[in-house]
């Protein structure tokens, strides 16, 4: 029983990070209709940059955290301006390939800059685990979920009340109508990329604190697909819920299926679910169904 609870908790922690990445992903898809395969690399960038600031430059963690977020936002702006803007109006396959190319480019550059060995964050959060009636939860986990939830709430508020957030929702809803209301679509695209990079950066820092930082972090970028498909590609609450569900399912399948397959089922179960969802309900739990009219 305890081990079940334990793996459920780690499922929720990983799920919260999936939810963060999925949030960034859906944000880009919703406002710019771009499927971003480079989300995992954005995450890796955040993790490495914060680590360097803390370890090499001895910056206090909260300052490094802020610095990383600002750098990630700048990177998002830069990527959109340089690579995505020339592609506006191109077919879907070209844009998918462009983000794949971007992922490869970023991965190469990150590898060249930081090398390939795993690096570990210094103990930023208190090491001593907390106990809840016999259950042991490491504090990093708690902080991760806390951070993730705070981020998710903040972004929800941002979309609901700030003028840029409302403008972004307007663009997502109908580009032409938004434009005729005086919203600059280019600006919105840039903001969407910046925010996506920021949330990925937060996710990267959190997961870096749990697992250490190495090149395999970019695989989180692929894991995001089951989460967003499950939730619906263009639904922000769907992305968040999908992230948590996939995280939990991973933990459970790691527990119950791994003995059957001698490990590795964690990687494949989310994708099996993805296929099933696509077959039964292609627009996910909360996605809007596209109805084509001639």
């Amino acid at each position: 029983m305890e081990s079940i609870l334990q793996s459920l908790i780690s499922g929720i922690v990983v799920g919260s990070i999936y939810a963060l990445i999925a949030l960034g992903f859906v944000l880009i898809y919703k406002s710019t209709a771009v499927i971003n395969f480079a989300q995992g690399e954005l995450l890796m960038f955040g993790a490495y940059l914060c680590l360097t600031l803390v370890v090499v430059l001895q910056v206090p963690f909260w300052l490094a955290f802020l610095g990383t977020l600002i750098a990630a936002a700048l990177l998002g702006f830069f990527l959109e301006r340089l690579f995505l803007r020339p592609m506006i109006g191109e077919p879907a396959i070209s844009i998918i390939m462009l983000t794949i190319g971007l992922a490869s480019l970023m991965q190469g550059i990150i590898h060249m800059t930081w090398g390939s060995e795993t690096r570990v964050y210094p103990a930023i959060f208190p090491v001593e685990p907390l106990r809840f009636g016999g259950m042991v939860v490491s504090q990093v986990y708690l902080y991760s979920v806390l951070f993730a939830v705070v981020c998710l709430i903040l972004f929800n508020l941002f979309f609901r009340y700030s003028s840029s957030g409302i403008a972004m929702r307007a663009v997502a809803n109908d580009q032409q109508a938004a434009q005729s209301m005086g919203i600059s679509i280019k600006k919105i695209f840039a903001i969407a990329w910046a925010i996506a990079a920021v949330v990925a950066g937060v996710g990267g820092i959190l997961i870096g604190n749990i697992n250490g930082v190495n090149a395999s972090l970019s695989s989180f970028g692929l894991k995001v697909f089951p989460a967003v498909i499950l939730g619906g590609l263009d639904s922000i609450p769907g992305a968040i819920l999908g992230g948590f569900i996939i995280g939990l399912l991973e933990a459970l399948s790691g527990m119950y299926l791994d003995p059957l397959f001698e490990g590795g089922s964690k990687e494949v179960v989310p994708f099996v679910i993805l296929v099933v969802v696509l077959m039964i309900k292609p627009y996910g739990l909360f996605g809007t169904e596209e109805i084509e009219k001639i």
């Binding site: 690579f83 020339p86 592609m87 191109e90 070209s94 390939m97 462009l98 794949i100 190319g101 971007l102 992922a103 490869s104 480019l105 970023m106 991965q107 190469g108 550059i109 590898h111 060249m112």
Partner: peptide
């Protein structure tokens, strides 16, 4: 070398697409 190959690969795709 692996990293260089990867970045060049990505860059070539991007440049062609643009």
């Amino acid at each position: 070398f692996g990293a260089i190959r990867e970045s060049v690969f990505g860059l070539v795709i991007i440049l062609f697409l643009i």
